[in-house]
Amino acid sequence: MLYENPVYRIMGDRSILVELGDEISLTVNQRVRELFLTLDRHRIEGVVETIPCYRSLHIIYDPLKITLPTLQDRIKGLRRTMNGAQIPKPRTLKIPVIYGGEYGPDLLWVARYHKISPEEVIRLHTGSTYQVYMIGFAAGYAYMGTVPEALVTPRRKTPRTIVPKGSVGIGQKQTGVYPVESPGGWQIIGRTPLKLFDPTRLPPTPLEMGDLVRFFPIREEEMAHWQS
């Protein structure tokens, strides 16, 4: 549910969470995006950075430059001017994936879990458009959702200590790509040759909160083409 009025959750002496709803939903997330982009456009003196999440915007400020009441007043003022009109349409990104085999070691497990064929898993995964709800946990790690009901899969009982960079996984209703090699508990069904985190580029990830994503299957031989 979208709150009628935001809940301002105070986190210490230099940050607040402006919470706009109590659930993971497109409606709430789009309002977070709207507030995030509005604050980007109207820079408030003393705001250090803003980080959009599922249902809240995290605002970090310099308490020596702006007081909390002033900051809250400014946010309230900006919210009154928001009508959704100035918000740019989300972009759609297409992410190539090699499904199964050594690149997607859990594809067969996921298929068996849902009693469908691996081809059907791929068809379902590539058949939906996903929304980037937030980027967090690690650099370039986009939380995308939601996967079709028929593909909602629990996390692995034992997380892997090493998940290779580019691995595409499913964890409950979410899907996503591991931007760097890291430990992880999602079911890995494929791998993308695209770099989703490159610290030498600005921005370091091609994905932004609010973007729409579609996955499409490629063959192993096409990998090199997509790496460039």
Binding site: R14, S15, L17
Partner: peptide
Amino acid sequence: IISEGVISGT
């Protein structure tokens, strides 16, 4: 909880 922002010291 639903994932959200954190800051050092939290």
